[in-house]
Every structure is written in structure tokens, then in C-alpha cells.
Design a protein around this nucleic acid. Structure first.
Lengths: 88, 88
DNA sequence: GTATAATTTAGATAGTTGTCTAAATATCTA
DNA sequence: TAGATATTTAGACAACTATCTAAATTATAC
């Protein structure tokens, strides 16, 4: 994942809030939605951006789709950010 | 400066490149422009975004305006980023 | 003070993004 | 299989962003 896509995904408050909520526990899209004043399709859009950036993963559980932080990439992201800041 | 404004400023490749160039040395807007395939007014727009985000400072030197990294805020930014990632 | 140089500001435009409603898809249950 | 539930996809639209050209600003040099 490029630094570009990662930063772009992170540069939206709604998406950062999604990540913070998912930190506490994995949640279905609908449950997540209760935290936002926004329609589910809009939320779905943000979830998709986060997925494209590899920041979250999703799995189906019956009728629901459960979203989780993709913790495994966070180290890599932190590394990239540090590398970038070290250039500065 | 809010994390939001910082991340938004950083989430553009042109602006990150500006920061990397300024790392090496302070430069006038016109000198900076030689590194980009873009008109000076466009570059000026990006410089302004970086200034609003407090990532660069500028001073006049005769006819030129010299841009510099605002290194003093970088620690603060890194701190905010770390704090955010720690929530995750 | 007039011309030149460096940069920004103003205004226009095309592309991107966030949001919505409506429709489609996938799953479960009776 | 029909109906209900959860979510996404499609399509439209307004707001925002990056870019450009032309004009304005600021400073120097003659």
C-alpha cells in the first residue's frame, strides 16, 4: 500500500473515528452506523476506502458483514510514516 | 493545529515532495517551482496549504519569498500521530 | 518614477469526494 | 419459496480541490 493511499484514507475524520471504534471491538456495518449521523451507504463508502487502504478487513457472518481493524499492517504504516518524517 | 488539517496537508504527493525538498535547504518559491511540472500559482496554492497547516514558514528576502520547513512543529505532529495510532 | 522580476491573488474550470435516495444482492426464517 | 433483514451498488448532485491564465502586489534597478 502506498503512503499516498494510506494518508488519504486517514485524512478524513469519519474514517479515523471508524478506526477508533473498531479498535474496541469488531462490529457489523449496521452497528458501526449507530455511531454516525450518516446513511449506511455513505458509511459503506468510507468502509470501502479503508478497505482499499488495507486498514480494515471484513468478513460475512450470516446476514451481517463484520469489520475489523487490520492490525497486521499498522506496524508497516507506522514504519512508512517514520521513514517519511525522517526525511524531514 | 488539528490532526485533521495536518493529515489533509500531508495527503498530497506534491506537498510531501515540497517538504522533502525544503528539508535539504530553504528555497524561494521560484526555485522550488523548478522541481515541479506545474505553474507557480498552482505551487503557491500548495505552499499556502502547507503554511495553513503550520508545516512551513515563509519570509521575504528582497523580491523573493523564502520557504522553510517548520521543524519546530514536527515533534508535535509526530506526537499526535503516535497518540492516534496508540488508540488503534 | 518606470520597467523588470518574483510571487500571490482572483476567477474560471475540470476532476474528485462525500453524501443522498433508490435499487440490487445476499442471507436467514417461517 | 416468500418475506424480512443487512449491506452494497448505482446514479445523481453539491462541495471541495488542483489546476490554469490573467491581473495585482511587492521589491529592485535604472
Amino acid at each position: 500500500m502506498t503512503l499516498n493511499i494510506t494518508l488519504q484514507a486517514l485524512s478524513d475524520p469519519t474514517r479515523r473515528k471508524i478506526l477508533e471504534i473498531l479498535k474496541k471491538k469488531d462490529l457489523a456495518a449496521g452497528e458501526l452506523g449507530k455511531n454516525f449521523d450518516m446513511t449506511l451507504p455513505s458509511l459503506s463508502h468510507h468502509l470501502n476506502v479503508l478497505k482499499q487502504a488495507d486498514l480494515v478487513t471484513s468478513r460475512r457472518r450470516g446476514q451481517e458483514i463484520i469489520y475489523s481493524l487490520n492490525l497486521s499492517v499498522f506496524e508497516e504504516i507506522a514504519e512508512k510514516l517514520i521513514k517519511f518524517f525522517k526525511k524531514l
